[in-house]
Design a protein around this nucleic acid. Structure first.
Lengths: 395, 395
DNA sequence: GCGTTTTGTTGTACGGCTGAACTATTGCGC
DNA sequence: GCGCAATAGTTCAGCCGTACAACAAAACGC
């Protein structure tokens, strides 16, 4: 006997309105007063007052000193997200580094640990052990500062089941068939187990873009050794059935092309993967992307040819992507961000030519705005988003 | 000052629980009693009683005569969706026919008008006028029977803006840049304007599958002159930014392939479009698909070669689709349903080979279960779904 | 035939929002 | 400098919808 959703009682009203008020405070362009929140939400000032008081008591919202506006009347108390109170953890294991980043509700980085080094064909137990101690260290630091850790998100470069938290395969790490969460076993200071979820790296990196000035729907492409993507529609990740979507790296660009490790021929990765681009420019596959940028700046022919070819292939795969999912903004992340000056217009040109909807709504191609290790930021933000989306659990 | 969602008041509780109770009655496998609904929803029997009474009074739910179970106790009153009470209209204009279908909440067809004939390069005003009179006729019939029309959905074979209801282009009709709803101007018997929304044909046809035994997430591919698709995740259409997704017909299968009307080369439509398949088998493009089936049954070489080639191309495009959106069920509709015996295993083989997730979750390829003119059924169902999703508006 | 069991209804209690009255605190005009 | 208007935030009675418990209805079974 299916029954989607749960029965609504009186306290359901509370939860929903608490969420509404929290959203009004967190999404406002300027710190709103209780009266502003009332106007924005449609609730009465009386109700808003009690709800805001609860959020303040729970440490999610803070009051700034009353500032007299130029208008007459009692000065309003501006409400802002509370900093250094509730924090979220972003974790990541990727091909060339692993790390932890802790964000508070303001969006400030309150702690961070990043360790570089190749993790190609690494031992999951050993690597997760190192990540665990990095995380424990960061948790200790922020809890010493009186903050509460709301949870964590782990980003991995592979197929991750969004519901079960299981990593099916991460080719570039050499990992397969494992459940990272029990191994991590993260705990808060009081010994209680921390809520940890696992996601694909490109998807969390996509969410990091939401911190900046990005439209509500976009496609984020993360160019690394593999090429992954995250689909964001109305500021929410679209995961498909299990979160195994966005595998753009294996879109077949040309069936007559080179063989790919996945078994097919002419996959996008064989044209626009990081290692292919570096090798095509005569660089070692472990070279930093910036060395490729140097060659491009210098006008190196091999580098320019390879990158243009990669850009055309990427554009072709993205046009297909746009035709299949319909988004009108494409954010180029990972290695493509630094290469944007050389691939951006190539990609945009091909997409404009091939996207069926382009004549009616042009597709905007832009570089990613989030800084390095975007998945760490995205993961931490996602934890905090869940806090704001259900404040009742935290007050 | 953004505020997603609206303020929740007491009557919001009512609305939500009313929806919950309606869902429990409509989605139950067997007619539930009030007590069953209470158990399924978590509400008390007292609350369920008042809510059910309201649904019965509003004509959405009907009571069957009490049937004594074999167990002791007062016999339960089985609750079922009310037939011939509130109905939804499905409308469609397609390349070779136009029509109206009226469904009630039970799922019965209570009225239908379908007119065949080529509408290639037709005049929108004239065609919509004909559709309008078909619809008005059907509306008159069901209203004479005492039914209330909740709204209508119009299916068109082209790019339709899901929010604005605007048709950007329908190449095979020769239509472009028009808003069909004002032209239709459908009215109920009392003169009030009927709520009409416009959608893409493949997407509404996809929703028709939900009436049958289909998993909650699947990809529906509609093979006609063009090849379109609908993405259903958790029984809901995924529309992307504006509903311009699923344009699988222009996935490039081979850049060295034949030129397509869209400007690219080697689009799926050039391998698996209905006209290409018919022509490849030596049939006129206006021939019915069944004549192609006859040739295939007879073992005609040209027909078999063409259809197998189309199947491989379709499989390749669908593998890309699956890698980008992640669904593990593919429903072949339109002309592909009749051709399933010849393309099904070809498609399944290619998808199995190319879908990255296939080793972890095999992809099921199956023929569509909804009958002919599936978009009519899907459109009508969609109207009724919105009624059940917000019963408060109808009681 | 009467206890048992299950269904559906009735009445009271309680929680949460509203609306109006009230307090607090400022700017402005004189 | 003082009163008045204006705006922010709080207090309290009223209302609404659900929960809980008691009750009525209608079967089964021994």
């Amino acid at each position: 006997m299916p029954a989607s959703g749960a029965a609504s009682r009186q306290h359901t009203l509370r939860e929903r309105n608490l969420r509404l008020v929290a959203a009004a405070v967190f999404e406002a362009s300027a710190p709103p007063s209780r009266a502003d929140v009332a106007a924005a939400t449609g609730l009465t000032r009386a109700t808003v007052s009690t709800l805001v008081d609860r959020l303040v008591a729970g440490g999610l919202v803070a009051e700034l000193p009353p500032v007299a506006a130029q208008k007459a009347g009692r000065p309003a108390v501006p409400l802002v997200p509370a900093g250094r109170s509730v924090v979220g953890l972003g974790l990541e294991v990727n091909v060339d580094y692993l790390g932890v980043r802790v964000l508070d509700l303001v969006g400030d980085v309150v702690a961070e640990r990043v360790v570089s080094g190749s993790l190609h064909d690494s031992d999951p137990r050993e690597v997760l052990g190192r990540l665990r101690s990095l995380a424990a260290d960061a948790i200790g630091e922020v809890e010493a500062g009186g903050m509460r850790v709301a949870g964590a998100r782990l980003a991995l470069p592979g197929l991750v089941d969004a519901r079960g938290g299981r990593l099916e395969v991460a080719p570039n790490l050499g990992w397969s068939s494992l459940e990272p969460v029990p191994g991590l076993d993260l705990r808060a200071g009081d010994g209680s187990a921390l809520d940890v979820e696992v996601s694909n790296e490109a998807k969390l990196a996509a969410l990091a873009e939401l911190a900046g000035d990005v439209p509500p729907s976009f496609l984020y492409v993360s160019g690394d050794v593999g090429v992954g993507a995250g689909i964001v529609v109305d500021r929410q990740l679209f995961l498909g059935e299990r979160g195994w979507n966005g595998e753009i790296g294996h879109v077949v660009v040309d069936p007559a092309g080179p063989r790919c490790s996945c078994g097919a021929t002419g996959c996008l990765e064989q044209y626009a993967g990081k290692e292919v681009l570096l090798r095509g420019a005569g660089l070692p596959v472990s070279a930093p992307v910036l060395s490729l940028v140097d060659l491009l700046r210098a006008g190196d022919d091999d580098a320019l040819t390879t990158v243009r070819r990669g850009g055309r292939a990427l554009g072709s795969a993205l046009a297909t992507f746009v035709n299949l999912v319909d988004v009108s903004t494409i954010v180029l992340g990972g290695a493509y961000t630094e290469l944007f000056g050389w691939v951006g217009h190539v990609v945009a040109g091909v997409v404009e030519e091939r996207a069926l909807a382009a004549p009616f709504a042009p597709v905007d191609v832009r570089p990613a705005a989030a800084g390095p290790h975007a998945a760490l930021t995205g993961g931490a933000r996602e934890v905090l988003r869940s806090v704001v989306a259900d404040p009742a659990r935290w007050v």
